[in-house]
Design a protein around this nucleic acid. Structure first.
Length: 481
RNA sequence: CGGGGUGUAGCGUAGCCAGGAUUAUCGCGCCUGGUUUGGGACCAGGAGAUCACAAGUUCAAAUCUUGUCACCCCGACCA
């Protein structure tokens, strides 16, 4: 899917609309519902693991933001900054009131670590306060030079967890826990395949000891980061002076993590699951699960009455069952028109009711992902039958995407071939043995424009693709979106 | 910031080179009425555009000149 079609699809399926400001979008009801579903699913999982939601302010005072200069070094070049509080009208022109200039500039959060850790330093005193498992659903602004709808918006909504722990074991366990949550969530709910591993020092989140990442391929050759988990060890607590008194009365620094996903996932879903007919949404996050389309002749009132009765029956079966059904009874549109419309919107199932169905006392069910047809009677078994189809769709979407990712992943041990493949845009991921070194990493980037998406430690040793030195690390290379 | 391109209705576009019958073309979408409906219906009617903005040349500018702005693509930058 090229960029033009990607944008067209988003506009046509009414997921989002461009706003007046570059890089800022309007999430429309259909798109926002996808996000709400993502949010609700993940939120419920996080509630079970005893994470609690909070909300911190949108604006961060400059002095707090700059406490950890290392942490924000990637962010201070792309901040939106509030400097004034008033306008005045002068000569019929609206200008900033110079008198209202703020003593200290306020920064619209590009990420919330600074204000959160600053606050933790005031809240946390005892080991009894730990672990602190806090999560925030918020919006942030990063004024990027080049935008791409959902993939790189200037404003996006995200989930950011910020936790504090007594010791290293507890902290690492938290990271493993979140890793498993994200793995299951991205695979089972979004049907997106991925590779996981660690970021290199060049690529990791500033301030982190290590960054664990989830990477996938979109558009056959570009790579996208889906989620990240950062292990800060005591980096943040030392800078922000977040200390607690342990059982023995000794003062200790706490161990920190942060982790997040964002509305970027919507972009990934669109790019990975769409076909030439438009979107395909995994049932678990689809705003509408079933679209019912009637086929009417000659404005036949009797036929319409019969169809309505069947629709009522179906709706009754699914009443209170978390399955959203829409009945498009617009008599001015032809069925074909409706088929195209809802295929484009990616609704997982379509039910057709017409003369044939009434005669045989059945309904026709068509899957969006492979257009397979099912003919079922309307009875109480229908609910379970449809749940089964939904499961099949989820699985099919995942394996289809996984197959595609695999076909765009190559294992290479020759640097010449490696370079050529990236030049010709012939691959997404290239897996190779690699001896970690920040200079060779930059050289490879210069040569190929590809970066190390992640590193994985292996038991077996091999020769580094660039230097030929023995290493037990493999790197997954790719071009970033 | 470099190289290239584009700005005409909600969207996609014709017209621009060679200025004037322009009341700015056509398609999608939208509204009204009627006939339709098993893969994007048809007929009739209707609404919707200071031709990106500004200045200039001219009797006359969507069209020519200059400037400004915005956007897109390829780089650079960037999780």
């Amino acid at each position: 899917m090229n960029n033009k079609n990607y944008i067209k699809l988003i506009i046509k399926s009414k997921i989002a609309f461009f706003s007046e400001i570059k890089g800022f979008i309007i999430l429309r009801t259909y798109g926002y519902k996808i996000w709400e579903n993502i949010k609700n699913i993940l939120n419920n999982i996080l509630i079970k693991t005893k994470h609690k939601n909070v909300y911190f302010p949108l604006l961060i005072p400059k002095k707090i933001f700059f406490i950890d200069k290392n942490h924000i070094k990637n962010f201070y070049k792309e901040c939106a900054i509030v400097t004034h509080s008033k306008f005045i009208i002068k000569n019929n022109k609206v200008i900033l009131d110079p008198k209202s200039k703020l003593e200290e500039e306020l920064i619209i959060r590009p990420t919330s670590e600074s204000i959160i850790w600053y606050t933790y330093s005031k809240i946390i005193q005892s080991y009894r306060n730990l672990p602190i498992l806090i999560n925030q659903w918020s919006n942030i602004i990063r004024l990027e030079i080049r935008n791409k709808i959902f993939i790189r918006n200037s404003e996006f909504i995200l989930q950011e967890g910020h936790t504090g722990h007594k010791n290293k074991i507890e902290c690492i366990n938290e990271i493993i826990k979140i890793k498993n949550i994200y793995k299951k969530f991205i695979k089972n709910y979004l049907c997106i395949p991925f590779i996981t591993g660690f970021k290199t020092n060049n690529e990791k989140f500033s301030g982190a000891k290590f960054t664990f990442t989830f990477e996938t391929i979109i558009n056959n050759y570009k790579c996208l980061q889906l989620a990240t988990i950062h292990y800060f060890a005591k980096n943040f607590s030392k800078v922000y002076k977040v200390k607690y008194t342990n059982k023995k009365g000794k003062i200790k620094y706490i161990w920190c993590t942060s982790w997040g996903i964002s509305t970027r996932l919507i972009g990934a879903i669109i790019m990975i699951h769409s076909d030439k007919n438009g979107l395909i949404l995994p049932p678990k996050i689809a705003p509408i699960h079933i679209i019912i389309i009637p086929i009417i002749y000659n404005n036949n009132k009797n036929l319409i009455y019969k169809i309505n009765k069947i629709v009522y029956k179906i709706k009754k079966i699914f009443y209170n069952k978390n399955i959203i059904i829409k009945y498009d009874n617009n008599i001015y549109k032809k069925p074909g028109n409706k088929f195209y419309k809802y295929e484009n919107k990616g609704i997982p199932l379509r039910i057709i009711i017409g003369k044939k169905e009434i005669k045989n006392n059945i309904i026709e069910i068509v899957r969006r992902d492979n257009f397979k047809k099912y003919y079922y009677k309307i009875n109480n078994k229908l609910y379970n039958k449809i749940l089964k189809i939904f499961k099949k769709i989820q699985i099919n979407l995942y394996y289809k995407a996984k197959k595609k990712m695999k076909s765009n992943t190559l294992i290479i041990n020759n640097y010449k071939i490696f370079k050529n493949l990236f030049k010709k845009k012939k691959c997404g991921f290239i897996i190779a043995y690699y001896k970690i070194n920040k200079y060779t990493e930059l050289k490879i980037k210069k040569d190929t424009n590809a970066t190390i998406r992640c590193l994985i430690k292996k038991k077996k040793i091999g020769k580094c693709i660039y230097t030929g030195k023995i290493t037990n690390y493999i790197a997954i290379f790719g071009k970033s979106y």
